[in-house]
Design a binder for these strands. Sequence first.
RNA 1: CGGGAAGUAGCGCAGUUGGCUAGCGCGCUUCGUUCGGGACGAAGAGGUCGCGGGUUCAAGUCCCGCCUUCCCGACCA
Length: 412
Amino acid sequence: MYWSKYFIPTLKEVPTQTEAISHQLSLRAGLVHMLTSGVYSYLPLGYKVLTKVENIIRQEMNAIGCHELLMPSLHPIELWQKTGRDKVLKEIMIAFDNKKGQRMCLGPTHEEVITHLIGHFVKSYRQLPVTFYQIQTKFRDELRTRYGIVRACEFIMKDAYSFDRDWEGLKKNYDLQRNAYLKIFKRCGLDVIVSAADSGAMGGSVSHEFLVAAPIGEDAVWINKDNGQVRKEEEGMSHPGEGWSRQVAIELGHIFQLGTKYSDSLGAVYLDENGQQKPMIMGCYGIGVSRLIAAVIEANHDEAGIIWPKEIAPFDVEILPVQTADEGLMSFAQVCYQDLKAAGLEVLLDDRDESAGRKFNDADLVGIPLRVVIGKRLLAQGQVEIKVRRGGQVIVVAQERLKETILKLREA
RNA sequence: CGGGAAGUAGCGCAGUUGGCUAGCGCGCUUCGUUCGGGACGAAGAGGUCGCGGGUUCAAGUCCCGCCUUCCCGACCA
């Protein structure tokens, strides 16, 4: 991609009325744009990152046998009345009457819809277990939005739902999800903390949260440095004692063993081997996908900008020709561009006729993991410079060794 | 929803005890010179001073009401 033909509206100055680093950097790097409080557009660069995160999630969900589907955002309120959650979630639910006078809402989550759907299609123990997931927009009318994309009224979530014949099956699925979550967060460059947690409005018994340390976290966990135990901080909790330290963190994922709460009230039942009707045993598993990006930025940045982990970086390499007026230099940059692209890399070429300083600063801000700087002096000696965004290591190599060096650095 | 702060050009800001045609920096347009860390010169475009009402000869500035955004709390990925 040529920068001049793309759309990366970087900001030199820190936007006013922003506190969180991730909020500031996501605006400054041209990832997102606010429409109104808690409602954001994803600009091309931000959307590219989002897509990469989504694809990692897809890979890991598919790997444990989940099936992707897409459920609607518009729900008839009757469905929610059946579980009583029209009242439980009233505060955050966006509800309205349509032209036919039907009460509708925008889905804040999808237990009701999926249970209704599975109850319709699944009738026999032979069809179980089964797990579905979607990556979709959720609507929650937060009384207080926070830190840009961290707590929004419209956000993107991965939600998965498992249906089993018994609790043994559920526990197996629960563990599969748990392990998949660890892989997902790792691939996104996050060190995740897993903690047993309260099930809240979701219902059910066992649940675990996946948190990432961040100063803007809305939660806190206590970690025991001796045995690695983790405890979620509950309200009014006192210091657990020697060896425990407190860590403020942001919740990115939450998995629940729901049991029969939804299958009972929505009639999701199946016939077992003996012809006996039984409620399906459910689990649900969520990841705040858009929030995850904010957490990644919180955990991966420096004074100058974002430092993307390689798997979710919008591009693998940025090529930065310093003197755009120099035709020989620019054509060499284009050769490098084609060369690296042919090697299977996603490459961004900053072909803009801007001052070197501005291009360097934008490159730091946008945070592509590897940068190839092409300047007159080194080029005259048949050399180019590679700069690693994380850590700032600078390597000067002969032109012929550019591709292999980039590929090697990418694997590192 | 309680408490606090803020709203002047796309972004960041100044605007004094009310007083001339509302300014500055960045960005944007055109031309020229530049080109290894946000270059320089020249000429331009861009405003419902958040909205409504009031006070006054005169309101960005004072008063009242409202809206919006941000932060702290209470609640959730």
